[in-house]
């Protein structure tokens, strides 16, 4: 009997392993292979449609001195940091407001979700029209309110990045809200009651109890949003095209220009590998935080 069980267990295990084969093969072919291919062509001077010439690390040396690319990395970092932290603060505030058993809140929550399903390209086109420096509704009414937006939100160098950050915040704060709201709802009630008996105020409650308890959720939300914000392309491509000057040229956009406009695929591959390293570092930092707190 024992032997039989063992055998059937092995058989079951083998069948289950077969279940894993398709996705593993798929990921090897369509995910790992392109990534490795990218690593490979990063060592070549290759123009699309032309012949490849092995150049070793030349592309990476060129990258280290490529001011436009390094600047685009900085722009990316600024974009990710500002967008995600604003989304976190707003997300937490709105989640706090929504955290109630009231039926009305549920309805409100439903509608708050809309931007997250909004096709990003459409969002970009809509905001571009709203931001139009002379005829856009946002520009017009901001000016009417006496706010100095210079020649226009998306054409002034110091305002353009802010303008696209606002679009990202509009689109993705709701995601933060939903994740954090779920986190808030799962918090235990006891610590609050105890602290209230001790006479703690709302602010103290928030920082002493809510934040520490919510920390795992906060970190995961930050991780998801940071990695997604690192991928930003559609909205910037549509709204500013990277301008004015290079003020909104994020790394994705620069790499796209090099690879798809100038067709320098070898160098573009090297640049995207540089970006990938940045992405992995960001991911690892968060993962380390998440595990160190849990473990």
């Amino acid at each position: 009997m024992y032997l039989f069980q063992q055998k059937s267990f092995d058989k079951k295990k083998r069948t289950l392993i077969y279940f894993l084969v398709p996705i593993t093969v798929y990921m090897l072919v369509f995910f790992l292979y392109p990534v490795l291919y990218n690593l490979f062509i990063g060592f070549f001077d290759l123009k699309l449609g032309g012949t490849a010439e092995f150049v070793g690390l030349d592309n990476y040396r060129k990258m280290a001195g490529d001011e436009q690319f390094l600047n685009s990395l900085i722009t990316t970092m600024v974009f990710v940091f500002c967008a995600v932290s604003v989304e976190l603060i707003f997300g937490l505030a709105i989640a706090g407001l929504l955290n109630s058993e009231n039926k009305k809140m549920e309805i409100l929550r439903t509608f708050i979700l809309i931007p997250t399903v909004f096709t990003p390209l459409v969002a970009g086109l809509v905001w571009k029209s709203l931001y139009h420096p002379d005829m856009g509704m946002v520009s017009y009414y901001l000016r009417a309110l006496g706010i100095n937006i210079g020649r226009g939100l998306i054409v002034e160098r110091h305002l353009a990045l802010l303008s696209v950050i606002i679009v990202d915040v509009w689109e993705w704060t709701p995601l933060m809200v939903i994740i954090l709201l779920a986190g808030l709802k799962s918090l235990p009630k006891n610590p609050y009651e105890a602290a209230m008996i001790d006479g703690a105020g709302a602010v103290q409650l928030f920082f002493r109890i809510t934040v520490p308890l919510l920390k795992p959720t906060l970190l995961v939300a930050l991780l998801i949003r940071s990695l997604d914000a690192l991928k930003v392309f559609d909205i910037i491509w549509v709204i500013t095209g990277g301008g004015p000057g290079t003020s909104t040229t994020v790394a994705n956009l620069r790499i796209y220009e090099v690879g798809m406009n100038q067709l320098q695929v070898g160098y573009a591959a090297a640049l995207s590998n540089g970006l990938l390293v940045v992405g992995i570092i960001v991911g690892l930092i968060f993962v380390k935080f998440i595990y160190s707190k849990e473990g």
Binding site: T24, M27, P34, L227, D228, K231, N252, G259, A268, G279
Partner: peptide
């Protein structure tokens, strides 16, 4: 390893994969 590979897709900037994918 499988799990990490699969979770890495989320960290992968689209631009990294799209150009080699086109060639493939």
């Amino acid at each position: 390893i499988l799990l990490i590979m699969i979770l890495l897709t989320r960290a992968l900037p689209t631009i990294v994969i799209v150009m080699p994918f086109r060639i493939i």
